[in-house]
Each structure stands twice: as structure tokens, then as C-alpha cells.
Nucleic acid binder design. Structure first.
Lengths: 327, 327
DNA sequence: TTGTACGCGTTATCAC
DNA sequence: GTGATAACGCGTACAA
């Protein structure tokens, strides 16, 4: 493998000059820089990341910590993050916590020596633990707000308030919420937004906590019918699709008998049914913003916006309609 | 951060001894080793991966290359791989190629300096490219066989032959195959297995290539009905569930009018409907086997078994039944 | 603007 | 079984 020393020799300069030409181009005369860059091209030189890491203390690796990959929700977030990381000449590594606070802590400790910083998505650990961790390692929180740490979230609650207004206007009073995974910070927020927004004029039945899966949606139908809800809001698309699947399976019409909506939108992944009312947003932007903030933290610049909020827009489709007359 | 030098001093030994006590414990006297390990504990020493990488040439990082994370199929494979990597005291990083051969090549080149080797899952590149790559870097291929490279696959074709026998026994003659992503090596293999196994007594309609999503399953129903198939075999569970969803939605009964089965089993992820006939296998074992083989390659030992095949078992459930009488 | 010299923390190669 | 010592490849004071 060709080393920087080879480049320096080929370009007829010292190693330090060659090094500077790459890392601080503005500090070297333009013709010198060109000779170096030229030699780099010719020899196909690539820095040895280990050597760079040893002197600079930075590995060029960022870690994104997600609860699971079974939920495809995280796929476009990761894609956005990986793309942004590459643009910043870094590599993003994904680590999975399986939704357990203990495993989350283990994993963070395990890789913290290998990476420059973390984007922790929907963390399960307590605020105190996260703050302590963030004090020693650059970290950005996603899909949760921890006071004192940089964070980026989707503004689902605002979208859910819009949705609830539509449901109310359509005459819905008995609404079921298919809630998300136990311990999800976002789930609690969504539930509160729905309850506040529904107000005293209606009744919100919370079903769950539920795993955010198609099958859980299927299995929730029994309880939905028991509660005599005329509208269902699901934590995610898979739950919504599962519910519609099973509702039709048992002869309940959607939306004639029961309206269904989802708080996220996996339709872009082909995992939502085309007719289901959802909240739409740009998950890649979440990942990208997380990486941008993290890179700023690592480089020692304070991020300009320590808390980023990404908007969610209501898309009303045919799975939502007027409330059925009371049975 | 405490360095090995600190440990050596605390234990009253030289650095080289301290180093050996950690990397080749059998080469140091047991009491010396204990003193060193004790100091390691007390001081909370952790090796600096960059320094280790600089001298040893090994980073302790393995890369698993997957086409996408939108398909949750890969989640348990990755989980199994990450777990096995940790057991081997390594970290597994996931890189996504978005199913493009060009991007696959870019990505491999990009991270090849940072990792000790690759597990390339369902690669899109040509055999020649992969062989060339594998010649310079330890690599294991998963979900495809490339002669000359170590590989690990699920034996879906065998399972599909079992399935086809059941379908034939139940009187099905007109069978539709919802095929997978364009360019998928596994998809071609599955299609061939079905065709061979069906033989001349029946007709196989191939619908696709299709993205392996719920929505594509929904949209394939029109063509399924056009072809007057009495049984549908889908490339994956999401396609199967989408098809069932839409079949029922348009008044076609499952399995009375049309039987449906899937060539993989996402039920464990909650992404399959509980009643759908599937092929079941252990995806974590695929990831684990891949990592095991890769670690052997990296350590310079030839893997004992260069080609691993993981069995797939047919699970007949209520989405399959006797063929409807010809309409 | 450029060159010299040293340090980063660990492993490997020798001697002992 | 153990201890000096020399790499590993790059960044960066500091001096020129």
C-alpha cells in the first residue's frame, strides 16, 4: 500500500507538506499543492485510517444506534444518515440495541472507542444516563428530546392534532389508539397529543403497548371492535395495515364502519396500503440532520440549531371517512 | 485514557509482557498474567483500536453489505451476524448498497481500508467482479453462490419443491409466481425450482419482477386474477400478505378460491399474517455462519466448510388448500 | 511557505 | 518467560 511518504517523495516535498496539502490545503502554495495532489492521484494514495486515528484521535466513524432493524421505519433514516456521512467524508456504522436499555448501554460502551460520536435513535435509557454519556462523547439524540443534548425529532404530535381535528369534524367520538412499543418516548407523546386534541367531547381508548407490526394490528382488531371505536389511529403503518386486513377479514368495512389512520408513513417503502390516511414526513432528513449536528459537535463547533424539528403533514386518504351512526 | 504502559507499570512488568498477557495469555506465566489482568481491571484499561490496527493491520471491524434495510428480511440476518461478531470480539458494521451494482462497488472500495473483511449479502455485481474483489480482501458471499468464494445460502429451492408437491397434490395446475427484485440471483433460482418441480402437467405464470413489498403484492392481484391462477407463490411474505389483503378486498376468498404461499417467513418479525403458508428457516444462522467463515478467512485458516447451506422447512397453514374447480 | 523531529499506543522481533 | 527496541503511518509543534 502506498504511504504518504511515497507521495511526498514523488512530489519532491517533505511529508509534513504532503500532509498539509491534504488536510489544510490553504496552508500550502498552490503549485506545491497541485504537485502533491497529482502524486496522490498517480499513486492512488489513500490515507491509512488507523494511522490517522492514532495521531488525530478521530476515526472518521460515526455510529447510529437504533432499537431494531425489523421495523423498516428506520431504513430511510439510516440511508439519509449514511449518505450525509459520506458527503462529510465519514462512515456511518449501525448498531442495534434490540430495544433494551441494558443492551443499549453495553453497545454504547463497546463501540465508543471506535467511533467519533453517536446518533442515538429513540433511546430507551433514562435522561440521566444519556446526559452522562453525552458529557464524555459527542452525541445527538433522535426521535426524543433530552434537555441538554442536541436532538432532532419528527413533529408527529402536531400532525396528530391535525388528524384529530379531521376525525372530530367527521363526527368521530370513540377513537382507539393502537399504541407503540412499551417504553417508547415518542409513543407517549403521540398518545398525549391525541388525548389533548380530542378533549372532553370524546373517548380515547388506548390499546397496547403493541409491537409495531402487521401481526399486532391483526390481533388488535378484536379489542377495537369491543371498544366500539369508529376510528382507529395507529402508532405506525404496519399496525394500521394489519388492522385493516383483519377488519375486512371479519366483515367490517373500512372506512364505512371504521376509519383507520397511521401516525407514520411507510408507504414510500411499499409497506403501507395506498389508501390509508397517514402522516407524511421525510425520514432521510432526520438522519441527515442528525449527522450534520453530530459532525459539528465532533469538530468542536456548537451546532447552530441544537434542537431540530421536522414537520409531519397529514395525508387524508380513503381509509378515513364519516363516522358510522352509533350501533 | 489509560494506556498499556500504565497497566505494565502498575503490574510491575514490561509492556511487551502486558501486551502478551492480553493477546497470547498462554505465553506468560499464570501469576504474571493474573497481575496484569488485575491491573487491567483496576485501571479500566481498554486497548486503543487505532494503535492496534496500526501495528497489526487488523481493525477488528467486519462489514456486512446488504442491498437495503427497507426489507426487514435482512434484520435478523444482521442481528445474528452482529451477535456472532461480538462473540469473536469484533464489531460488525452494516453498509447499504441500495441494490445497485455500481453503488455496491463504490461502497466496497470506500470501506475496504477500514475493515478486515466483508460479508456480501445478495450481491448484484458479476461473478468476475466479486472474484477479483475476493482475491484482495477476505470476503464471504451470502444468499448467492460464486464458485471460488466462500458462501452461505438458505436452501429455499428445496423448500419450494416441497411446496410445489403439496400444491400439485391439492390439484393446483395454474400457479402464479410473484417474483422478486430484478437481478436477484436467488429469485432466478426460486423460479427455476418452481418450474422444474411443476413439470409439464401445469402452467407457471411469472409475475414481475416486483419489489418485495406489501404494496406490490396488492398491485399484483389484478394480474393474478387475469391469469386465472388457483395458487400463488410469492417471493416473500410481504408480497404474499399484500396479495391476500387485496384478494379479500375484491371479494376473492383465500384459500377457497386462491391459495397463497410465501418463499420466506417474516412471521417471526410480525410481518406475515399468521395463517399464511411459508418456508421457515433461521436467518440469524445465516448471519452467524457468514461471520464465522469470514473470521476464519481473516485469521488465515481456511474455513472448514466453504459452502454452507441452511435448510428451509415448509409450514403449511390455512392460506393453502384444495384447488378451486375450474371457473 | 516549508522542513525537522517527535509522539500517538500497540505489536513483533529479537535477545536474554 | 520476559524485557528492550524498533517499527506501524500520520499529524503537528517548532524552527527555519
Amino acid at each position: 500500500m502506498t504511504r504518504l511518504a511515497d507521495v511526498a517523495r514523488a512530489a519532491g516535498v517533505s511529508m509534513s507538506t504532503a500532509s498539509r496539502a491534504l488536510s489544510r490545503p490553504d496552508l500550502v502554495a498552490s503549485d506545491t499543492r497541485m504537485r502533491v495532489l497529482d502524486a496522490v492521484q498517480r499513486l492512488g494514495f489513500q490515507v491509512n485510517p488507523a494511522a490517522r486515528a492514532l495521531t488525530s484521535g478521530k476515526t472518521g466513524l460515526l455510529a447510529m444506534c437504533v432499537p431494531t432493524l425489523s421495523n423498516p421505519y428506520f431504513a430511510p433514516i439510516i440511508a439519509g444518515a449514511q449518505q450525509t456521512a459520506e458527503a462529510a467524508d465519514r462512515h456511518l456504522t449501525v448498531v442495534v440495541t434490540e430495544g433494551s436499555a441494558r443492551r443499549e448501554a453495553e453497545v454504547l460502551a463497546r463501540v465508543s472507542r471506535q467511533v467519533d460520536g453517536f446518533i442515538i435513535v429513540a433511546p430507551r435509557g433514562g435522561d440521566a444516563d444519556l446526559l452522562e454519556f453525552g458529557a464524555t462523547t459527542p452525541a445527538v439524540i433522535a426521535e426524543r428530546v433530552v434537555p441538554g443534548l442536541a436532538s432532532v425529532v419528527i413533529d408527529t404530535p402536531a400532525g396528530l392534532r391535525d388528524l384529530m381535528n379531521v376525525l372530530k369534524a367527521d363526527g368521530h367520538r370513540r377513537i382507539a389508539y393502537l399504541s407503540g412499543p412499551a417504553g417508547s418516548w415518542m409513543d407517549a407523546l403521540r398518545c398525549d397529543a391525541l388525548r389533548d386534541s380530542l378533549g372532553d367531547g370524546g373517548e380515547l381508548s388506548v390499546i397496547g403497548p403493541l409491537p409495531p407490526t402487521f401481526r399486532a394490528g391483526v390481533e388488535a382488531v378484536e379489542e377495537i371492535l369491543e371498544r366500539r371505536a369508529t376510528a382507529v389511529v395507529a402508532y405506525n403503518s404496519l399496525l394500521a395495515v394489519g388492522a385493516v386486513y383483519q377488519l375486512r377479514n371479519v366483515g367490517v368495512r373500512v372506512p364505512d364502519d371504521v376509519s383507520v389512520a397511521s401516525a407514520d408513513d411507510l408507504a414510500a417503502l411499499g409497506l403501507g396500503a395506498p389508501e390509508i390516511t397517514t402522516l407524511h414526513f421525510d425520514p432521510a432528513a432526520l438522519g441527515a440532520a442528525g449527522v450534520d449536528m453530530l459532525v459539528q459537535l465532533i469538530d468542536g463547533r456548537e451546532p447552530e440549531v441544537p434542537h431540530v424539528r421536522i414537520p409531519a403533514h397529514l395525508r387524508v386518504r380513503s381509509s378515513e371517512g364519516w363516522a358510522a351512526a352509533e350501533g
